[in-house]
């Protein structure tokens, strides 16, 4: 097909614009990949010369920052286990039982969940945690996140379980399984892709959050990495770009690794029922 001149120019202009927008998004990512390996990194984008690991050596020399990564892992994994287990059981019950008003329960919880982990509720949350004597413990962060993430997790999972035919468990029970056996043998493996989605989502949420651990924790040896990043600011409040860049890269690796692992193992696809 022959293009008219205005259409041709239009296409070129469109491609150029798209390339420009793409570059605008790519530049920070490139900086993020280059700066950690550059001993003289600044806020401008530059190809490291020479490539060096000296920034990482300095970061790993900072015991507070390393401990913080470990703390992040404890809090994220703990929170995710709690959210995953509780949401699975709750969503399964909400999906399969015929409780009156179960829809309303889910929606009300969902509505309030944004409040619980939101900044508006910070003062009451602090008071509750303080009254429970949990200030400055991993458990405080884990429980607060579990409470905040559970309703949404339940909502996602309930939707997922609703789409799975009841006949799986029914056939197991007719075959002689108790409801508990039917749940663990048949329902749980079928629901697993949904649980994985919730777990990844929960992990990313807890791993990346700043405000809740910042408020609920006091001592340095409890702080997660999201807070520890601030140790790479000088006394005057200016960031030490080289170390910050290196630490940020390390900080984002677990999340990337989790995504890769899940997409390799589960492919982020739902296999609900077998096509009949």
């Amino acid at each position: 097909m022959k293009l008219t001149l205005p259409a041709f120019i239009g296409r070129i202009a469109f491609s150029a614009l798209a390339a420009l927008i793409g570059a605008a998004f790519a530049l920070p990512l490139l900086w993020f990949l280059f700066a950690p390996f550059n001993a003289r990194a600044e806020l401008g984008l530059a190809i490291p010369d020479p490539w060096t690991l000296s920034n990482f050596v300095t970061v790993f020399g900072n015991s507070f920052a390393v401990q913080a990564l470990w703390n992040s892992l404890i809090q994220s994994v703990g929170g995710v286990i709690l959210v995953g287990a509780a949401a699975t059981l709750a969503a399964y019950a909400l999906s399969r039982s015929s409780l009156p008003g179960k829809g309303a329960v889910t929606y009300i919880l969902l509505l309030f969940s944004s409040v619980v982990s939101g900044s508006a509720a910070m003062v009451p949350i602090f008071l509750i945690v303080s009254a429970a004597g949990l200030i400055d413990t991993h458990l405080a962060v884990i429980l607060t996140f579990a409470g905040g993430l559970l309703p949404t997790a339940m909502f996602i999972l309930r939707d997922f379980i609703d789409s799975i035919p009841k006949s799986y468990e029914e056939s197991a029970m007719v075959a002689g399984a108790s409801p508990v056996q039917a749940f663990f043998d048949v329902a749980l493996p079928v629901i697993r892709p949904g649980i994985v989605v919730v777990v990844v989502w929960g992990f990313v949420n807890i791993w990346g959050s700043f405000l809740i651990p910042f408020i609920l924790l006091r001592s340095d040896d409890q702080m997660p990495a999201s807070v520890a990043i601030y140790s790479f600011y000088s006394e005057a409040g200016t960031p030490i770009v080289t170390l910050l860049a290196a630490y940020s890269l390390i900080y984002s690796l677990p999340v990337i690794a989790l995504y890769l692992f899940v997409s390799w193992k589960f492919g982020f696809r739902f296999f609900g029922g077998i096509k009949a």
Binding site: Y168, V174, A175, P189, G273, A276
Partner: peptide, 20 residues
Amino acid sequence: YHPKDRQISMVFQDYALYPH
């Protein structure tokens, strides 16, 4: 009686084969 205590077997319309 619970289904498991009835000594029955059943073939479902959608077969209900466990995908895993």
